[in-house]
Amino acid sequence: MLRVGLIGCGAIGSVVARELAQGAVEGAELTAVFDLVVDHPLRVDDLGSLLSRSDVVVEAAGHGALREHGVAVRESGIDLVVVSIGALADEDLAAELKKAEGGRLFLCTGAIGGFDILRAAMLFGPLDEVAITSTKPAAALSRPWMDETVLDALASGSEPITVFDGPARQACALFPESANVTATLSLATVGFDGVRVQMVGDPAATRVRHVVTASGVAGTYELSFENAASPDNPRTSAVTAYSVLRALTDIRRPSVSFL
């Protein structure tokens, strides 16, 4: 039986915990939850207790949690599944996680896919352009650092508004709760400084939409994803938690994979 420990029991983690408890992943069970705020019957109060009860740890608590605990999990010999991939825009953290010896490092693909064809295209030849446009319910993109005019448009406007247009590295810093798909795309293709990101707030949107475009010598690609938003956090796609469960299924049954 694969023992699964969980860091964070919020919008994503709570769904993972519930589904594991209901047997969603054959041969895996939830054995510990490390969250200092949310109560849970399997809650533990420190990382050491979590690690002693786990074969694999799922990080679902945000960038700060990955910075604080990620290296320690790997160095303990426990496998680590990362949900907050946007944190890896920090080159120092990415290097530390990569060089840590012990448990394996898995990056959860989250709310988008298509990385297999893009990686194959990169083997054929360079990708000249990679971009992603993420459109979310307008209120989900409000941030304290925004101009008052932009905040007003997000709160009461009737038209979509682009609140960011720039490199993935900057997007991950400015929208840590919303840019994990951007980070995953960057790591799978041309890097954080090569992927262009647009973040769009749409007052009419009820779902989270991501459109990935790429072009290179192998061809031209457009991948579109429209996901239901998490009922507990509109900045997150509801399917993300199930991407974690899919990752755990693959870890539990490594002989079954799509190559």
Rank of each mutant, 00 (worst) to 15 (best):
K99Q: 14
F164M: 10
V200N: 02
S84D: 14
A188R: 04
L245C: 04
A153C: 04
L50N: 03
I251G: 06
A32T: 05
A179K: 01
R235W: 07
R104I: 01
S52F: 00
L51I: 09
E29G: 07
L248M: 11
E26C: 01
G125C: 14
P176M: 06
A183V: 01
H210S: 12
V244N: 10
G8I: 12
V44S: 02
K98L: 10
A121T: 09
P126H: 06
L80V: 15
S14R: 15
T236K: 00
V217P: 02
S142M: 05
L118K: 04
A72C: 01
G219W: 15
H63G: 14
E129M: 08
T182W: 11
V73G: 05
T149R: 15
G48F: 01
S158N: 12
L174M: 13
H63Q: 14
A100V: 13
V217Y: 11
T135W: 06
E75M: 13
A89C: 07
T184G: 12
P144D: 01
A60L: 05
S257P: 00
A21N: 06
K99L: 13
S215D: 09
C172Y: 06
F192E: 04
E129W: 07
F175W: 12
V239N: 03
G8T: 07
C108P: 02
A17M: 08
L223M: 15
H63I: 11
L174S: 05
W145P: 02
S224H: 14
V217E: 13
A179Q: 03
P254Y: 08
G201R: 09
A168Q: 11
E129V: 14
T220D: 14
T249H: 11
A24N: 03
A131F: 11
V73S: 08
T182R: 10
V33N: 02
Q22E: 06
A100C: 12
D250C: 07
P167K: 15
S54D: 15
D45W: 03
S52D: 02
L141C: 07
L30F: 06
R143T: 11
